[in-house]
Design a protein around this nucleic acid. Structure first.
Length: 984
RNA sequence: GGGUGCUUAGCUCAGUCGGUAGAGCGUCGCCCUUACAAGGCGAAGGCCGGGGGUUCGAACCCCUCAGCACCCACCA
C-alpha cells in the first residue's frame, strides 16, 4: 500500500488528474463502500436527535430481489438524509433465521446425499443448519453492501443469536404467565408435506377448478336417500352427521333420523343447523368435524364425534378400511369409483373452489386436529388498535390504517408452534403425566417441577419450535438489547419509521406493535411507511416460475443475454415453461442488460416510489437515470476543468486540508456534524466576509439566479422528504441539475469564462458559484446516489472549502431564504425567453444551430432595454447572434421572422435564409395557439358570475392574460400581413 | 360476500390550495458547438375511463357506471 491508504477514493482512483469522459460506476462503487465501512461512518454519531430504522430482517437463506433492493433504497435514502441532517442515526442490520425456508434448503441438501433429516437426528441436523448458515448465509448482506446500504454492520444481529433467543424465551414465559399463551387441541392448517402446522397467514387460498360431487346417502330403514354435495368426497369416511337447515321444508321430516354412511358400517344422524345454506347444492351438508373448519364448529354445537381419518402426511389412517394408507387424492378417486359402482353418485358438476395451499410448499393444506401453542391475541390487538387510533403510530399513506383495523378487529388466535427443528424451541417441559412447566430454561423448569412434586422428576422439553414471526415480532427491541435496559434501547426505541410492503402488515407490522406495546412499553415505531410492490414491465408479479425475475445485481453489473436465459430457466418447477420463458427473455432483452451501476438503480427506485401504487419496473427509466449519472459526472468534469488550479475565491488554498493529507476517519465517534452552513459565498459586493484568503468576487445575474433557484429546490426537497415523497424529491433535483444547472447555468458560465475581457472578480465569482452549486447538488443527491456523489465530492471538496472526509457526514442543504433573489430570477427568465424564441425560429426553419444570425429588437420597454444592455453577451453567445441592434419605433423593419418576448419584438431578418411560406406557417401556428387561449380567457371574463364570485386576484390575472394575448396577437397579425405581402 | 387502490400523451408515471394539463422514455426535424452523441437545440402528440352533480370555474370534491389490479372471508 502507498502512504495514503485511507483515501483510495480520492487518491488511488484513475481520476487522479482528470475525470474519465464518461461515468463508470464499476470503478468506484465497491472501493468507496469499503472505505465507508472501514471508517465506521455507518454507526450512530452519538449526538443529535435519535433517528432509527430497523431493517426488515431478510432471510439468511435469501438473496436480494427487486423488492429488497427497492425497500433498501428507500430506507438508505432516509437514513442518509437524516444522518446528514445531523441526527444520531442508526440503521439496524440483521437477518432472520426463517425457520421453514431455511430448514427446507438444508433438507434438500441432505436429500441430495440420499438421506433425510431423521437419519441425522435433531441435534445433528440443527448443527448442519448452523454450519450452512455460516458458509452461505452471507449472500444477502454482501448484496446489501452492493446497494450502498449504510447499515450499521457492527451491530448486526441474527434472530437466533443468544441475545435475541433470550428475548424470545422471556416474552414466551411472560405471555404464558399472563395467560396469553395457551396450549390447545384444535383444528389447524396442516401442511402434509412439511408435517407441521402453519398460521392462517401462511395459507394462500386461490380459486381452482374442481368438482362438486352429489352423493346419495341412504336414509336408514327406508328406501329414500338424501343427496349431499361435496368438493372433497374422500372426507366422507370421517362424516359424523348430515346437516340440513332447520326451516327447510324438504328435509324437516328427516331431522333426527339416521343415514347409513356409504362405504362404512356407520349410521350418522341428520341434524338441523342454521349454518346450512338451503340454496346451495341440495341443501344437505355432510359434516366432517375433523377435516373442515366449519364442520368442526357444527360438530361442537351438536356434540358430534370427531373422527380423524388422516395421518400427518394426509394418507388415510383407518386400519379397518380398504382405503387405509392411501394418499388423499388416490383415495378420492377410489371412493368416487366405488360410489359410482354402488349407484350412489347422482351427478358430478364442474365447480370452482378456493383451494388452500401452503405458501412454502404449495401443498393443499389440510385442516388437522392437533395439539398446538397459541397466542391469545384479543387483548394485545385491542392495545395495538388504540395505538393507531390515537395517532401514536401513523401510516403513510394513511389509507393503510383501514386495512390494519380491518384485520386487527377480526384477528384470530395465533398458532405459534411448528413441528420443525430449526427455530426457537418452545420453553415448555413435560413430566411423565404430561403436566407442563413453562420456564426460562431447563433448570428453572426442573425447579418448578421439584417444588410441586417435592422431588426431582424427569422432564422432557416440547419438541416444537416457534413460528419465525414470533421472534420477528420482537425485532425492534430485541436487537437493542431487551430485556436489558440498554443505552441503545433507551436512545433508539421507539424507532422512527418502519419501511415495508403492505403484504407484510399482518405478518409483521401488527405483531411488532402488539409485542412492542406489551413488552417495551411503547410503540415500536412512530410511522409506518408502506411502499408498493415491484412488478415487471408488464405489471406482472416477479416470480421464479414465471421466469420474469430481474436480479438487482444484474442491473448493477450487467448481464449478457445467454447468461440471463440460463439463469431464468434453471431449476424450474415446471420445465415445460422453459421455452416460453426463453422466448420472452430474448424478446425483452435482445442485448442482455447493460451495467447501470448502483446509483442509477437507486435513482430509478426513488423516482418510482410514488404512493399507493405498485411499480412497474421499466428498463427505459433506469436507462434515463444512468444517463443522468453521466450528465452529473460530466457537469463535474466541466466544473473541475474550469475551477481546479484556478482562483475560486475559496479560503482553503494552503493544501493542509487536501484529501491526501487528512487524518484517517475515526471509527464511529468524532464525526461531528458541523453547523449547516452553505459554502462561504460572499455578498454580491464581496464584502462582509473577512478571511485572509477570501477574495472579493462579483456575481453575475446568472450566478445570483442559480443560487436563488438552488434555495427553492432545496425547499422543495425538504418538503418532499417530510411527506415521504422521495419520488418528488429526486425529480426536483433531477430537473434542476439537468435543465437549469447544466442546460442554462453551465452554458452561461462559459460566456464569462471564455471572455478575455472578464475581470478577475467576475471569473472568481463564476467559478465559485459553479463549485458551490455543484457541491450543494452533490449533497442534495447523496441520499439517493451515494457513490457518484461521494466520488465527485471528494474530488472537489477542497475547492468548495470543505475539509470533511466524506460527503456522508456533511450537512444536508437547507434552503437559505436570504439568497432568494426574485429580481435575478425575473431577469434570467427574460434572457432565457429571448434565447428560446430565437432557437425556436431556428428550429422551425431548420437553420443550422451553428449559423450566426443578425438580430433586431423593437418596441421594448425600459426594462427590456435595461435587460438587453446588461445581457447582450449572453444573448449573442447562446442565441448565436451575429449582432443585436435596436430598431427605433416606426422604423421599417426588413423582411424578418419574428418572435415576441412580452412586448418586445425579436426579429431575424429573412434575407435569403428564410422561406416565406415556412414563416407564414410558423406565424399561423403561433397565432392559432394564442387565439385559442384568448378566446378561452375572454369567455371566462364575459361570464358575470365569474367576475363577481371568483377571487379578485384570479379575475385580475385573467384580465392580464387577455391583455397580453391581445397585444401579442395583434403584433403577430401585423407581422403575418407584412410577410404575406412580400413578393415570392 | 366485504374492503382497498388504479384509469392523465404511443409507453411508464407526476399533478400540492379546485384557477393557463407536466416529466422521463419513445417519435419527428436540425446539429459530432472544446463537460457530456449515455449529448445539444427545436417540434409533434391529451374529451384527464363513461355519465351525472356541486361550483363563477373540476384531472382534482360528491354520486354513479365500467374496466383493471390487489387484500380479506368457512358457502359444502
Amino acid at each position: 500500500m502507498s502512504q495514503k491508504p485511507q483515501k483510495p477514493a480520492g487518491g488511488n482512483s484513475p481520476l487522479e488528474s482528470t475525470l474519465s469522459k464518461s461515468y463508470d460506476p464499476h470503478s468506484i462503487e465497491q472501493r468507496i463502500y469499503q472505505t465507508w465501512e472501514q471508517a465506521g461512518v455507518f454507526a450512530p454519531s452519538g449526538r443529535g436527535k435519535p433517528y432509527c430504522i430497523m431493517i426488515p430482517p431478510p432471510n439468511v437463506t435469501g438473496s436480494l430481489h427487486m423488492g429488497h433492493a427497492f425497500q433498501d433504497t428507500l430506507m438508505d435514502t432516509l437514513i442518509r438524509y437524516h444522518r446528514m441532517r445531523g441526527d444520531n442515526t442508526l440503521w439496524q442490520a440483521g437477518t432472520d433465521h426463517a425457520g421453514i425456508a431455511t430448514q427446507m434448503v438444508v433438507e434438500r441438501q441432505i436429500e441430495a446425499e440420499g438421506k433425510t433429516r431423521h437419519d441425522l437426528g435433531r441435534d445433528e441436523f440443527v448443527k448442519r443448519v448452523w454450519k450452512w448458515k455460516a458458509e452461505s448465509g452471507g449472500t444477502i448482506t454482501r448484496q446489501l453492501r452492493r446497494m450502498g446500504a449504510s447499515l450499521d454492520w457492527s451491530r448486526e444481529r441474527f434472530t437466533m443469536d443468544d441475545g435475541l433467543s433470550q428475548a424470545v424465551t422471556e416474552v414466551f414465559v411472560r405471555l404464558y404467565e399472563e395467560g396469553l399463551i395457551y396450549r390447545g387441541k384444535r383444528l389447524v392448517n396442516w401442511d402434509p408435506v412439511l408435517h407441521t402446522a402453519v398460521s392462517d397467514l401462511e395459507v394462500i387460498s386461490e380459486e381452482e377448478a374442481g368438482h362438486l360431487w352429489h352423493i346419495r346417502y341412504p336414509i336408514a330403514g327406508t328406501n329414500k336417500h338424501l343427496v349431499v354435495a361435496t368438493t372433497r368426497p374422500e372426507t366422507m369416511l370421517g362424516d359424523t352427521a348430515v346437516a340440513v337447515h332447520p326451516e327447510d321444508e324438504r328435509y324437516k321430516p328427516f331431522i333426527g333420523k339416521l343415514v347409513a354412511l356409504p362405504l362404512t358400517d356407520r349410521e350418522i344422524p341428520i341434524i338441523a343447523d342454521e349454518y346450512v345454506d338451503r340454496e346451495f347444492g341440495s341443501g344437505c351438508v355432510k359434516i366432517t368435524p375433523a377435516h373442515d373448519f366449519n364442520d368442526y364448529e357444527v360438530g361442537k354445537r351438536h356434540n358430534l364425534p370427531v373422527i380423524n381419518i388422516f395421518y400427518s402426511d394426509a394418507c388415510i389412517n383407518l386400519p379397518d378400511s380398504p382405503y387405509h394408507g392411501q394418499d388423499r387424492f388416490m383415495a378420492r378417486k377410489k371412493i368416487v369409483a366405488d360410489l359410482e359402482a354402488l349407484g350412489l353418485i347422482e351427478r358430478i358438476q364442474d365447480h370452482k373452489l378456493m383451494v388452500p395451499r401452503g405458501d412454502r410448499t404449495g401443498a393443499v393444506i389440510e385442516p388437522f386436529l392437533t395439539d398446538q401453542w397459541y397466542v391469545k391475541v384479543g387483548p394485545l390487538a385491542a392495545e395495538a388498535i388504540k395505538a393507531v387510533e390515537t395517532g401514536r403510530i401513523r401510516f403513510v399513506p394513511e389509507n393503510w390504517t383501514k386495512t390494519y383495523y380491518e384485520w386487527m378487529r377480526n384477528i384470530q388466535d395465533w398458532c405459534i408452534s411448528r413441528q420443525i427443528w430449526w427455530g426457537h424451541r418452545i420453553p415448555a417441559w413435560y413430566d411423565a403425566d404430561g403436566q407442563v412447566y413453562v420456564a426460562r430454561g431447563a433448570s428453572a423448569a426442573h425447579a418448578q417441577a421439584k417444588q410441586q412434586h417435592g422431588q426431582d422428576i424427569p422432564l422432557e422439553q416440547d419438541e416444537d419450535v416457534l413460528d419465525t414471526w414470533f421472534s420477528s415480532a420482537l425485532w425492534p427491541f430485541s436487537t437493542l438489547g431487551w430485556p436489558e435496559q440498554t443505552r441503545e434501547l433507551k436512545t433508539f426505541y421507539p424507532t422512527s419509521v418502519l419501511v415495508t410492503g403492505f403484504d407484510i402488515i399482518f405478518f409483521w407490522v401488527a405483531r411488532m406493535i402488539m409485542m412492542g406495546l406489551r413488552f417495551a412499553g411503547d410503540v415500536p415505531f412512530r410511522e409506518v411507511y408502506i411502499h408498493g410492490l415491484v412488478r415487471d414491465a408488464h405489471g406482472q408479479k416477479m416470480s421464479k416460475s414465471k421466469g420474469n425475475i430481474l436480479d438487482p445485481i444484474d442491473l448493477i453489473d450487467g448481464i449478457d443475454l445467454e447468461s440471463l436465459v440460463v439463469k431464468r430457466t434453471a431449476s424450474l418447477m415446471q420445465p415445460q415453461m422453459e421455452k416460453k420463458i426463453e422466448q420472452a427473455t430474448r424478446k425483452e432483452f435482445p442485448h442482455g442488460i447493460p451495467a447501470y451501476g448502483t446509483d442509477a438503480l437507486r435513482f430509478t427506485f426513488a423516482s418510482l416510489a410514488t404512493q399507493g401504487r405498485d411499480i412497474k419496473f421499466d428498463l427505459g427509466r433506469i436507462d434515463g437515470y444512468r444517463n443522468f449519472c453521466n450528465k452529473l459526472w460530466n457537469a463535474a468534469r466541466y466544473v473541475l476543468m474550469n475551477a481546479e488550479g484556478e482562483d475560486c475565491g475559496q479560503s482553503y488554498e494552503d493544501g493542509a486540508q487536501a484529501p491526501s493529507a487528512r487524518p484517517p476517519l475515526p471509527a464511529g465517534e468524532g464525526m461531528g456534524v458541523r453547523a449547516d452552513l452553505p459554502p462561504p459565498l460572499p455578498s454580491p459586493k464581496g464584502r462582509g466576509e473577512a478571511g485572509k484568503n477570501l477574495y472579493s468576487v462579483e456575481l453575475t445575474v446568472a450566478d445570483r439566479w442559480i443560487l436563488a433557484r438552488l434555495q427553492e429546490v432545496s425547499a422543495e426537497v425538504e418538503s418532499a422528504f417530510r411527506d415521504y415523497r422521495i419520488d418528488l424529491a429526486s425529480q426536483a433535483v433531477y430537473s434542476f441539475v439537468w435543465h437549469e444547472y447544466c442546460d442554462w447555468y453551465l452554458e452561461l458560465s462559459k460566456v464569462v469564462l471564455t471572455d478575455s475581457k472578464s475581470g478577475s472578480e467576475l471569473l472568481r465569482g463564476t467559478r465559485r458559484t459553479l463549485v458551490a452549486v455543484l457541491e450543494s447538488l452533490l449533497r442534495l443527491l447523496h441520499p439517493v446516489m451515494p457513490f457518484i456523489t461521494e466520488e465527485i465530492w471528494l474530488r472537489m471538496a477542497k475547492l468548495a472549502g470543505k475539509p470533511g472526509m466524506t460527503i456522508m457526514r456533511e450537512p444536508y442543504p437547507v434552503p437559505d431564504m436570504k439568497k432568494a433573489d426574485s429580481t435575478a430570477i425575473d431577469e434570467m427568465h427574460w434572457v432565457m425567453g429571448v434565447i428560446t424564441s430565437v432557437r425556436n425560429i431556428r428550429g422551425e426553419m431548420d437553420i443550422p444551430p451553428g449559423k450566426r444570425l443578425p438580430l433586431l429588437v423593437q418596441d421594448g420597454t425600459a426594462r427590456d432595454r435595461k435587460y438587453l444592455d446588461s445581457n447582450r453577451h449572453y444573448l449573442e453567445t447562446l442565441a448565436r447572434a451575429e449582432s443585436i441592434s435596436w430598431l427605433e419605433k416606426g422604423t421599417d423593419a426588413p423582411e424578418s421572422a419574428t418572435a415576441l418576448v412580452s412586448h418586445m419584438k425579436v426579429l431575424i431578418p429573412l434575407g435569403s435564409i428564410i422561406d416565406k411560406n415556412q414563416e407564414l406557417e410558423r406565424l399561423g401556428k403561433e397565432m392559432e395557439k394564442i387565439e385559442r387561449d384568448l378566446s378561452k380567457a375572454k369567455t371566462k371574463l364575459a361570464n358575470p358570475e365569474f367576475v363577481d364570485r371568483a377571487p379578485k386576484n384570479v379575475v385580475e390575472q385573467e384580465n392580464q392574460r387577455v391583455l397580453r394575448f391581445e397585444t401579442t396577437l395583434s403584433k403577430l397579425r401585423a407581422q403575418f400581413a407584412k410577410v404575406k405581402a412580400l413578393p415570392g
